[in-house]
Design a binder for these strands. Structure first.
Lengths: 242, 242
DNA sequence: CGTTGCATTGACCGCCCTCAATGCCGGTGG
DNA sequence: CCACCGGCATTGAGGGCGGTCAATGCAACG
């Protein structure tokens, strides 16, 4: 009992661009099934090729790279609606791993069908490129955060993004969004130590700006939080859902 | 007297994947001309849309974002063979600016022709997506460098990449490659201060590992330099040239 | 009830930042 | 011809942000 693409609950969110009926019909053929990944499961592996590509339907995960000396750099977080595995699809191998943080439900596509998508569905090919360009944009912002912000601004920026992004897929209820990651994940994403991340979070909490506990993030003072971010966070632009 | 795509000198480099004759024929129509940009010229502007896309033929430039308080984050360097403007092509606007460092010669394409490319040339559409995924990969590596490396490793990594990448497009002569950027550009790319970048470069120079002066980079001890980089730098994978 | 994973807090210190001054070089104008 | 200036590289002094080390609390779990 997999979800029908024409009736995908995610697609109702305003964040995602509309898709024509004909294209949706193709999507249903393109989608070969669904995968449920348990917390801690490695969905894609760095340096490895994958015969399957995915779109996250629910749940969250982490994209990360591992350095020679075993350190981990989180290069992004996988939220509902995100496409994963494009690198494996167009280049030979993945350049980062993807691991499920919570239980995740994912649409599954066959990499071998990707070429027929490009040949017969130029609009979807365009959307895929759009998604890739969007990833580039997100990483550029992250790079700017890493290079130019102090610890407080980095964390404010990251949590501000989480709040906006999760609200955009309809996960904000009663002013709070689910945020199942560990402080260590955030630290690894921002290039901070766990200890300093914890202390900076405590300051934000004591300022009354936000609370992040037990897997839920509550932003109490959006204006103050936005003020702490040193780069302008544009409204999340509409993007394709594949 | 613009360069004929079928006779493009860049395409002879092993770095770039071969292109079929039919596709090259399309490329010649797709290319609408060439642009010569003087040093300091802004080729693309953050937050602005552009009706033209480019491929760098010669010369080098910088991609950068500007923060609210006027700081600059270099998100990448434009070398010969690089495609610029994809973000403007598939999303509405650029998310970073591109400025010429040296005089640059660029192939010019019309954004309005992009859709016909996706419709009629699926192989080129695939290549564009490949390039976008490659950018994502590069930024992921940069992010890892920013988050996990100390200053010496960052600089070693960056210069190691320049040496490899420029050699791959045939610009290494007598063991040295042109590197026309300022120390400030490198500092802004790595999230370091100019002062500390300078001092760290001095150490690398005194170690006899490399020399970077007067716009030329000479790597004297490749093994030692690779050893200082804390992430494994895979051989530059072949990629499309559009 | 020991263990494991995660959050929290304190002490200490080092990498890298800021401030500041100098040298070098090419361009420009008196 | 030379004084002046702007851009870039270089070097020293001092201090702060955020690192490491270490210990504690707490909840879930076998």
């Amino acid at each position: 009992m997999t979800i029908d693409c024409t009736n995908c609950p995610l697609r109702r969110q305003d964040l995602f661009l509309p898709m024509t009926k004909a294209t949706l019909t193709f999507m249903q053929k393109f989608k070969t099934g669904e995968l449920v990944a348990q917390p801690g499961t490695e969905i894609l592996t760095e340096q490895a090729s994958s015969s399957q590509l995915f779109t996250a339907l629910s749940g969250m995960g982490v994209r990360y790279k591992t350095t020679r000396d075993g350190e981990r750099q989180v290069v992004g977080f996988v939220l509902p609606g995100d496409f994963v595995g494009l690198q494996s699809g167009v280049m030979e191998v993945m350049r980062h791993s993807v691991e499920a943080t919570t239980e995740m439900r994912l649409c599954v596509f066959n990499r071998s069908d990707l070429w027929s998508l490009f040949k017969s569905q130029p609009d979807l090919a365009f959307d895929l490129t759009h998604l890739a360009a969007n990833e580039e944009h997100l990483l550029g912002e992250a790079l700017t955060a890493m290079g130019q912000m102090d610890a407080q601004a980095k964390i404010a920026w990251a949590l501000h993004r989480f709040d906006r992004r999760l609200a955009a897929v309809g996960l904000r209820r009663n002013g709070r969004v689910p945020l199942p990651f560990r402080q260590q994940d955030l630290a690894d994403a921002l290039g901070l130590s766990l200890v300093h991340t914890n202390k900076t979070l405590a300051k934000l909490r004591q300022s009354g700006i936000l609370t992040w506990a037990d897997g839920w993030l509550t932003v109490d003072d959006h204006a103050a939080l936005a003020g702490l971010c040193q780069i302008d966070t544009d409204a999340a632009a509409a993007r394709p859902l594949i």
